[in-house]
Design a protein around this nucleic acid. Structure first.
Length: 535
RNA sequence: GGGCCGUUAGCUCAGCUGGUAGAGCAGUUGGCUUUUAACCAAUUGGUCGAUGGUUCGAAUCCAUCACGGCCCA
């Protein structure tokens, strides 16, 4: 059997060691030797709960390896439950199955000469049954001083308790990592949002929901990768730092590249680089990665967020919409096993095809008091906007007024998935003009539960038109629009070599994850949301 | 940036119209050989977010600031 500090039999000697240290602070030499900085808090009182645990750790240090890394496990908790959960108490006793498990102590129930521990590992929980008889009295005494939060390894034989819970009757319990800080409260867990975000590891340790959310997030990105790769899309990585930010109307973060001595921008979108790849001949590409937009944060917006962008040559925006429906269904099926589910108390269903409405149709459909004639011409639309107290600058065209009406009156009211199509050209500087109306584009945005989740369009591949659109953006920037795009000459040059007819789309992964994990805030689906540093 | 709400023990929370701080969990000590948020008994633990002000007296009232949440822009 493995020897280990905490269960070494000489408890008398140990207590002598402890008191010697207490006199001379003898563990300091030990700490120095192994390179642990002396705590600078000699003037400052350490919290009693931590001091007690550090004293336990000090005892381990003098006894030998306090942080062993030679314990190996034979099973995860979940695999034990899977394999033996249904085996009866009697046949489990007969078969005498031994196992080695390891994990964090999350609950402990010490009842005299017998005890139960609940161990949590990466896959779930398993109960340990520990008796004085199986460990011996010295080891059992040491065992009793283990704290909730400690990481232990246990070797034993599987059993079922009177109540039928699968447990490991341990022959040895070995401390692998001493936890120096108390865990959050055992039933209510950790609820303080600030601490959950700042110390996400605690959230993950004690809140099953939080773990579940991030497991699902990983499943969603995995299902998307499979979905696209099954359709012969190739995953690529393009620069996070760009000398000309492009691909979206947004304010960029600025940084400095010392080696080149130039200011660079964190990308607001990978769009232009991905289309350069299509020009180069990679006809189906995608990237799942971060974008950075130097803007406010809210429950729907994170300045650093994850986007899927993909480009598909010889396809148009209608093809994208169909693909998007299938992609959403694949993701829901993967994480939920179904296509209908609830989000914040409301029923959502990805099974029916998502309606495709032009912006104009959407306004008429969602706003009862607005008829076709109320928004058909610029003057009518402006009058309607004024009726709803929406400010309309003089130079706006019909499309922008429609957009303003849509944003003010429709967006928040959308629940079930809807594609809104035919965006005005002024707000779509990279999208192909509609053949029916050159003021509109072959573009869509997908809205679900009031949130824009996806944005796609047939790509503008007319280099001269693109140059014209960039010039309009530069003019808007000069007029004070800090979100307007920069003129990207190299991109125009690429288009001049010829971009095949292509469709491209971005999908906000965080928002999709919110839907599929029933998260109210984007921070709940980001592992480490940005916070103002604590003073 | 604006509005509302919050900040009290390691965690989860009480604390009334101002009188000097409480519970549960965790910790410590003792008891307990099949528990399930184990239980029973005792017990330790607080710069009440910070700074000013009002007051004989402030966790409580007022102001400013910090951090966070929600809503709005």
């Amino acid at each position: 059997m493995l020897k280990h500090p905490i269960l070494s039999p000489c408890s008398m000697e140990n207590s002598i060691f402890l008191s010697r240290q207490a006199l001379s602070r003898g563990s300091e030499a030990q700490r120095f030797k192994i390179g642990i900085p002396m705590s600078s808090d000699s003037s400052q009182e350490e919290h009693e709960l931590i001091a007690v645990r550090k004293a336990k750790l000090d005892k381990l240090r003098v006894e030998g390896a306090a942080f062993p890394n030679d314990f190996r496990r034979s099973h995860l908790s979940a695999s034990l439950h899977l394999e033996f959960g249904d085996v009866t108490k009697e046949s489990l006793a007969e078969s005498n199955v031994s196992a080695q498990v390891a994990g964090r102590i999350v609950l402990k129930r010490i009842m005299g000469k017998a005890s139960f521990l609940t161990l949590q590992d990466g896959a779930g929980r398993i109960q340990l049954y520990v008796t004085e008889k199986s460990l011996g009295s010295a080891d059992y005494d040491a065992f009793k001083s283990l704290d909730i939060g400690d990481i232990v390894g246990a070797i034993g034989v599987l059993m079922k308790t009177m109540k039928g819970e699968l447990s490991l009757a341990a022959d040895s319990v070995r401390l692998l990592t001493k936890s120096l800080r108390p865990l959050p409260e055992k039933h209510k867990g950790l609820t303080d949002t600030e601490t959950r975000y700042r110390q996400r590891y605690l959230d993950l340790m004690v809140n099953e929901d939080a773990r579940e959310t991030f497991v699902r997030r990983a499943q969603i990105t995995d299902s998307i990768r499979r979905f696209l790769m099954d359709r012969d899309f190739m995953e690529v990585e393009t620069p996070m730092m760009q000398s000309t930010p492009g691909g979206a109307t947004a304010t960029p973060f600025i940084t400095h590249y010392n080696a080149l001595d130039v200011d660079m921008f964190l990308r607001v979108a990978p769009e232009l680089n991905l289309k350069r790849l299509v020009v180069g001949g990679f006809e189906k590409v995608f990237e799942i990665n971060r974008n950075f937009r130097n803007e406010g944060m809210s429950t729907k917006h994170s300045p650093e967020f994850t986007m899927l962008e993909f480009y598909w040559a010889y396809a148009d925006y209608q093809d994208l919409m169909t693909l998007t429906e299938d992609l959403f269904r694949a993701a829901a099926q993967r994480v939920l096993g179904r296509l209908d589910f609830t989000y914040q108390g409301k029923e959502l269903d990805f099974a029916p095809n998502f309606p495709r409405l032009t912006m104009e149709q959407a306004i008429i459909t969602y706003v009862e008091s607005v008829e076709f004639d109320d928004i058909a011409s610029l003057s009518q639309a402006v009058a309607t906007a004024e009726r709803f107290n929406i400010e309309v600058p003089d130079h706006w065209g019909l499309g922008k007024v429609h957009l303003a009406l849509f944003e003010a009156l429709v967006e928040d009211r959308i629940e079930q998935p809807v594609f809104i199509t035919q965006h005005p050209i002024e707000v779509s500087p990279l999208a192909r003009r509609s053949d029916e109306n050159p003021e509109l584009t072959d573009r869509f945005e997908l809205f679900v539960m009031g949130k824009e989740i996806a944005n796609g369009f047939s790509e503008l591949n007319d280099a001269e038109d693109q140059a014209e659109r960039f010039r309009a953006q530069v003019a808007a920037r000069a007029a004070g629009d800090s979100e307007a795009m920069y003129f990207d000459q190299d991109y125009v040059t690429a288009l001049e070599y010829g971009l095949p007819p292509t469709a491209g789309e971005g999908i906000g992964i965080d928002r999709l994850v919110m839907l599929l994990t029933d998260a109210a805030s984007i921070r709940d689906v980001v592992l480490f949301p940005h916070m103002r540093p604590k003073t």
